[in-house]
């Protein structure tokens, strides 16, 4: 299979299941059978590493290497090297990760939702176009500008997915959401208002002084 076909959501899912490391080995850049498959792969995996780092996973747990099919020795070297790295990092959610389990696994669940979501897929898919030809307005992006756009989506989408994930467990107040998610409560308040505007969340009831919100299931 071409590395360009690796779905970033699968990567998050793998870590969520407790994998300590994941290495993706593919053809060298410029030697792609499908012309730009591994360039696409690089964009996707770079972005996935940024996202994993953002949620608190040590990003070195994910590695992207190049090796041609004739280089058996190199392949062994790469794998051994990675094996050593993972041994040094220890088990997932432990010492070497900024966020520890089980908090990390909850965040990985949100990460999977972000990576499976169309915003991320769509924008990542546009990288080559944005950098070479430009966006719909003809603005050609630098790598830095593109990364900033991606970072923005990473931060916001992760928080939104965390909120939606929590709400799927049952109705919640803004205060309770903020308490359990480590997102500043004034931001949760604004996300909830925005999600109402998008018809993805609604006010269910008011209990005492707490308005409680509920998720509106989205059609496909």
């Amino acid at each position: 299979m071409c590395t360009g076909r690796v779905d970033p959501a699968i990567i998050a899912k793998a870590f969520k299941k407790g994998l300590d490391g994941l290495i993706i080995v593919g053809c060298f850049i410029g030697e792609c059978h499908y012309v730009s498959g591994n360039i696409q792969a690089k964009a996707k995996i770079d972005m996935t590493r940024r996202l994993l780092k953002h949620i608190g996973l040590n990003e070195n747990r994910l590695s992207f290497q190049h090796c041609s099919s004739g280089e058996a020795t190199r392949f062994v070297e790469i794998v051994n090297e990675f094996d050593k790295t993972i041994h040094e990092l220890g088990p997932i959610g432990g010492e070497s990760d900024r966020v520890k389990g089980p908090e990390l696994f909850r965040k990985l669940e949100a990460a999977e939702a972000v990576l499976a979501g169309e915003k991320m897929r769509w924008v990542i898919g546009k990288k080559t176009e944005f950098l070479e030809k430009g966006n719909f307005y003809g603005e050609v992006f630098t790598e830095h500008e593109f990364n900033r756009a991606i970072d923005m989506i990473i931060v916001e989408e992760t928080e939104v997915q965390e909120i939606l994930g929590k709400l799927k467990e049952g109705v919640q107040s803004v205060k309770a959401l903020a308490g359990s998610l480590a997102i500043p409560s004034e931001r949760v308040f604004r996300y909830i208002n925005a999600l109402k505007r998008k018809e993805m969340v609604q006010l269910e009831t008011v209990s005492g002084r707490s308005p409680l919100y509920k998720v509106i299931p989205q059609g496909v």
Partner: peptide, 26 residues
């Protein structure tokens, strides 16, 4: 309407004096 759900840009809602977020397509 779906446009506002999928737009990846998040910003203060100026009209509501920043009490909410809105998207670039909105």
């Amino acid at each position: 309407k779906v446009g506002i759900k999928v737009c990846p840009v998040n910003m203060y809602d100026d009209f509501d004096e920043g009490l909410s977020f809105r998207t670039a397509f909105d």
